[in-house]
Design a protein around this nucleic acid. Structure first.
Length: 491
RNA sequence: GGGCCCGUAGCUCAGGCCGGCAGAGCAGGCGGCUCUUAACCGCAAGGUCAGGGGUUCAAAUCCCCUCGGGCCCGCCA
């Protein structure tokens, strides 16, 4: 931590003075607290200059500012429910208490206050103070009272400073929690069972991403941190749990950017005897509900208003191949040889290895020609089979799989398939992934293929990033704004 | 990993192009002020200009390297 500043020496001096007078600067509790929001409500019917007679309340929170006018002083106090002005007069408190309290308190201190709810002469809801108590001295000073903490690096490294100085930041993380709970409730009501499956695996599969690798001292073997939840959850379908989901951390050994973080929270859900059409309806219902709830929580938020307005079923649909052919002017995409697709992808700026499987090039072309044109919630459907080794082939479109992605605000927030459940075809698709390029894309998971051989009911499954949903609904521009402690380099 | 930009007091920021005493506001100290709310007024204090090296009589400023961050690209359901 930084060297102690003169501010901190000053504050330590105040602690010493506090102790010398027999007062404890870090007491144990502050019982019978009333929330600031409730105190403000008590003052709502008062006229300026009035107070609630004979009704003493106790509030506690962080001291924000002190405005001292000689014989009268004002302190702004903040708890999780709001802010409240404390009103102190030398007349009511007496010379000794008044001066010592003002001298020994600083912005950032945690303070308990006892007084009468009142409204100041200028109309501000207040607490007319009878007694104050220091509950925890802040030795280090808080961020600047008006501008707060601006440095994006410090806001992440010392998130507590960001939170204490930014109600907006606190609100964004509160919304993340509310949204997660809402998602849970929606799937619970639909009859899905929440489960927990391993994070430490011998083979991390189910997605094309590099895993973090660690080691077990007891098994004397390498373990990988999961990159998706897919293969574990499908084994539960084989076991007879017909509707399951998990919300949990996944890890991918990659760089961060505005929509990716090496550790992030995934929601995956699998549904036996249903297909991707059923999943579309389930998702439309979920997003409609999230939009409605956001508007209840945040009636003034632009992002919430547009979500509530746009998340109305049925969402727009774009056929992957048809949309790409239309917007790029390239015909017969699926019958073109792989090297030609590679050349087309390179021509629109993609830098991908020339020996990649065709699906990689098609994804790049789609990103270039179609994705930027998607501005409202849209299902992109029926991808070329080569893009997706874990999805079931399309029942009527050759060369395609039954899949949809939900796009909104320029990025993908969810990905669904009718699941591949033919073990022999699954094995073939895994093999193709291995041979298509020198390095592995989807890891070959022999235990998963073995499980499939015991029969997995026809099913649909979806995965989406909780952070992406929170971003979409709160209007956050970076994934770091919706993760409390994003990865940072040590310094 | 590549390109561009940024790092000055505890916090928010000037100064940098054109080298010449290190600046302001908030917070803190001292003094004043009995209804303010980014309170106000006066005085004094506060610096490893991210770190290291170089050019120069002289470097926060110009050059090089390192560290950290931001944006874009790459990697990436």
């Amino acid at each position: 931590m930084p060297q102690e500043s003169h501010l901190e020496r000053e504050r330590r001096g105040k602690i010493a003075r506090w102790r010398a007078e027999g007062r404890e600067p870090f007491p144990w509790s502050f019982p019978d607290r009333t929330l600031i929001r409730e105190v403000r409500a008590l003052t709502s019917s008062l006229a300026p200059g009035e107070e609630v007679a004979g009704r003493t309340v106790r509030v506690a929170g962080r001291l924000l500012t002190i405005r001292s006018h000689g014989g009268t002083s004002f302190i702004d106090l903040e708890d999780a429910s709001g802010t409240l002005q404390l009103l102190l007069t030398v007349h009511e408190l007496g010379e000794a208490f008044y001066t010592s309290w003002l001298a020994d308190l600083d912005p950032g201190d945690i303070v308990g206050a006892i007084g009468l709810p009142a409204v100041s002469r200028r109309g501000e809801p207040s607490l007319r103070i009878q007694s104050l108590e220091l509950l925890a001295k802040a030795i280090a000073p808080p961020p600047e009272k008006f501008h707060g903490l601006q440095d994006p690096e410090e806001r992440i490294r010392r998130r507590y400073l960001d939170l204490m100085s930014s109600a907006e930041s606190r609100e964004r993380f509160r919304l993340r929690s509310l949204l997660t709970r809402e998602i849970r409730g929606y799937f619970d009501r639909a009859g899905f069972l929440e489960v927990e499956t391993p994070i430490l695996l011998r083979v991390a599969g189910g997605a094309a991403a590099a895993p973090f690798v660690t080691r077990s001292r007891y098994l004397d073997s390498e373990l990988q941190l999961r990159i998706s939840i897919e293969l574990s959850l499908k084994q539960l379908l084989i076991g007879g749990l017909e509707r399951v989901y998990e919300i949990g951390r996944c890890f991918r050994n990659e760089d961060l950017d505005s929509t990716h973080s090496p550790e992030f929270t995934m929601l995956e859900l699998y549904w036996a005897y249903a297909d991707y059409h059923d999943m579309r309806r389930l998702m439309e219902g979920l997003f409609e509900r999230l939009g409605t709830r956001m508007l209840e929580w945040q009636p003034d938020s632009e992002a919430a208003r547009s979500a509530a307005q746009l998340f109305r079923p049925p969402f727009a649909t774009l056929d992957f191949v048809q949309a790409l052919e239309e917007r790029s002017g390239i015909r017969d995409l699926l019958s073109r040889p792989t090297p030609e697709l590679g050349e087309l992808a390179r021509r629109c700026g993609a830098t991908v290895p020339a020996d990649s499987p065709p699906g990689v090039f098609l994804d790049k072309l789609f990103e270039h020609y179609v994705e930027p044109t998607i501005d409202r919630p849209t299902f992109v459907v029926d991808h070329p089979a080569s893009t997706t080794p874990l999805a079931k082939r399309h029942r009527s479109l050759p060369g395609r799989v039954e899949r949809f992605e939900i796009h909104y605000r320029g990025f993908e927030i969810g990905n669904c398939y009718t699941e591949l459940n033919d073990p022999d075809e699954q094995e073939r698709r895994f093999q193709e992934q291995l041979t298509a390029r020198g390095e592995e894309r989807y890891a070959y998971d022999a235990e998963f293929v073995e499980a499939l051989r015991h029969g997995m009911p026809p099913a649909t499954g979806i995965g989406f990033g909780i952070e992406r949903i929170v971003m979409a609904l709160t209007g956050a521009k970076s994934i770091k704004d919706v993760i409390l402690f994003p990865q940072v380099r040590s310094r």
